[in-house]
């Protein structure tokens, strides 16, 4: 069973639908016991880093997530992926879950000013390092992004990236902890293949 952590941030409908579509058992939950009893964890999220971290703290799940991340596969998606890092510079400076080395920084500051931010739409995801999560996925398939901040200084954990003037960190892994900047649940077939790969880890 996959636990999708509900901490009041973002839309969980598509994520749970896509897992169900793949025939996978999932549970949207904010209960510590259910997260502990699950086989895998997904940490979703949209919105601003500071708010999301504050909400996660309110649920009292920060320690649970940090603990469970060492025991079973965890996948952070979009803002949920950013929360896995050490800190973010979105509207100030905020501490993250510190499960992966690196920081979350402004994309606009690192790319040609003519390019639109948010980086929104379909972009190719190029695999740098093979990993079991790519079991069904081919390098160069298209995934769907919507974000204005991105992970950097995380070369060691980067499994795949996209190009948007600068290299945009797409998929990361440290130990059993994975993070996807794009939305696999909105990336058509390619996204479903990655979710299947994660579910079979």
């Amino acid at each position: 069973m996959i636990a999708i952590i509900d901490y009041g941030v973002g839309n969980l409908f598509s994520l749970s639908s896509s897992l169900k579509f793949l025939g996978l058992d999932c549970l949207v939950t904010s209960k510590k016991e259910e997260i502990e009893a699950s086989e895998k964890i997904i940490l979703p999220g949209v919105g601003a880093f500071g708010d999301a971290m504050a909400k996660l703290k309110e649920t009292g799940l920060v320690e649970t997530i940090r603990e469970q991340a060492g025991l079973k596969p965890l996948l952070g998606i979009c803002l949920g992926m950013q929360l896995l890092f050490e800190k973010s510079y979105e509207y100030g400076e905020h501490e993250g879950l510190r499960l992966i080395e690196g920081v979350i920084a402004s994309l606009a500051a690192d790319i040609n000013p003519d390019l639109k931010v948010p980086h929104m739409g379909w972009n190719r995801l190029y695999v740098l390092r093979d990993d079991p999560i790519f079991r069904y996925f081919k390098s160069g398939e298209w995934v769907y992004y919507v974000h204005s901040y991105y992970a950097k200084n995380c070369e060691e954990s980067t499994l795949a990236l996209s190009e948007y003037d600068a290299p945009v960190t797409g998929l990361v892994r440290s130990g059993l902890t994975y993070g996807a900047q794009f939305h696999p649940e909105k990336s058509g077939e390619a996204g479903l293949k990655l979710l299947r790969g994660f579910a079979e880890l």
Binding site: F13, S17, F21, K186, G188, L192
Partner: peptide, 11 residues
């Protein structure tokens, strides 16, 4: 909308 969103995984 719900019926469509539960099986179409694009934006």
């Amino acid at each position: 909308l719900r019926a469509v969103a539960s099986e179409i995984f694009i934006p």
